[in-house]
Nucleic acid binder design. Structure first.
Lengths: 236, 236
DNA sequence: ACGGTAGGTGTACGGCGTACACCTGTCAAG
DNA sequence: CTTGACAGGTGTACGCCGTACACCTACCGT
């Protein structure tokens, strides 16, 4: 009878509920500890029940990615191409910052999901509408690369990646440059912060990731705009 | 006795031999099917024997990455910064093209390996030597992002990724744009090839990845050079 | 002669994705 | 009102994974 109550009380599963629960679980505990068993447990269900709603784990991941891509603001059509593209890319970045596991999940798939293709397609459309030739638009898409999807690399600041939104974030407080490494890689140390002016803690304030992202984005957009304005036509 | 012969005949294991075998195996069968068991089997050894030479699988992966990074040509010191950086990045790209699993392996680690830090450190050194301020060098490193390590994104051309250097490469021949997708994503289809002029095979010649990589690289390097020449100092 | 040690072995455990047979509640057709 | 198909949750089981731990063995310096 208790079983009946449990069964009845719990909202019925659905593909959508499975995907949302998976995204939430990955946000909380990191993608590497998202298993079919954990997810099923979270939903109060037996692992195999999930397979009635997703074909396998790979398809689950694809669905999760599409949930995130769905959070990206649609393209504005009234503004000029540069403004519209810039805003949309920053919106994509915001979406991905909410789900730190997403970049890796996207990159480790070998097939783009429909939602991603749709996103990229509309981006090309914005470029074409802004006067870009098919060829130039093509090269621009490659040049923007993953930046188009809102993520740059955080090579220096390898926090995050896992999620763990919970309690203590700074157990390895800045942790990035442990002073022995500073000696071995002086240029990186200099870059990692104001450094050196204080021989106690070598670690500076780290980087302003948002600034770095926009710096690179604008560098690319300005260079791209120059090509377009110069009437770039074919491989020079 | 046969066991003795086997034991004696086989070259003794070493960390180096383990790492090289792992790289070779990943090249051949793809990183996702590289397991401690497979690798041990390849070396004619029992799985646990590997743990006398690498601490665990994560450290194995780190070692494999360092093997690849070690294949990158050293930085030339005589040439001007732009030329030196460009050549080195293209050398990094060549190294990574030989090991298609490497980008994902690098990105999925949460700590950079010493060899990668060394590589990046020397790259910053080249910039500083070329007259870049610490700040500008910092931003430039972020702007170059993963391109610094020689890989761009192959979002449109999701072949590779696995390796399988063996026999038939074109079982899914071009496979990229299956004509139904072309209707849904017309801009991408236009970009993916000459397209449309022939209603039979929608797929064009695909992209020249090397050209795309250098296009983006030079776009960035030129933009960066302009900033440097303009005496870029701080956040504008 | 002998103890230490480096390096290969065997067994075992817990976790993973998922194939497959099964049960159960719902609902439309007869 | 019966029936039977079907959607959806269950239970068991298999083969793979990384790796802890105890062991054995050949070699080496003393």
């Amino acid at each position: 009878m208790a079983e009946q109550v449990d069964t009845l009380r719990r909202a019925p599963l659905s593909r959508d509920r499975v995907l949302r629960a998976a995204v939430a679980l990955a946000d909380e505990t990191g993608i590497e500890s998202l298993s079919m068993r954990n997810l099923a447990n979270e939903l109060g269900v037996v692992p195999m029940a999930l397979y009635k709603h997703v074909a396998n784990k790979d398809e689950l991941l694809a669905g999760m990615i599409d949930v995130i891509v769905g959070e990206i603001d649609p393209l504005e059509t009234d503004a000029d191409w540069k403004r519209a593209v810039r805003r949309r890319i920053l919106s994509a970045r915001e979406a991905l910052l909410r789900h730190p596991w997403a970049p890796l999940a996207i990159e480790s798939r070998n097939e783009a999901t429909p939602a991603i293709l749709d996103y990229l397609n509309s981006m090309v459309g914005a470029l074409r509408g802004g006067g870009f030739s098919t060829d130039l638009a093509h090269h621009v898409m490659h040049a923007m690369g993953s930046r188009m999807l809102g993520f740059s690399q955080e090579l220096f600041d390898p926090t995050r990646r896992a999620g763990r939104s919970g309690a203590a974030e700074p157990p390895p407080p800045p942790a990035a440059f442990p002073a022995e490494a500073a000696a071995a890689f002086p240029h990186l140390a200099a870059i990692a912060g104001a450094a050196a002016h204080d021989d106690e803690s070598v670690v500076g304030p780290g980087c302003d990731d948002q600034f770095e992202f926009e710096f690179a984005l604008d560098l690319l957009l300005d260079g791209i705009d120059r090509l377009r304005a110069d009437g770039w036509t074919s491989r020079p």
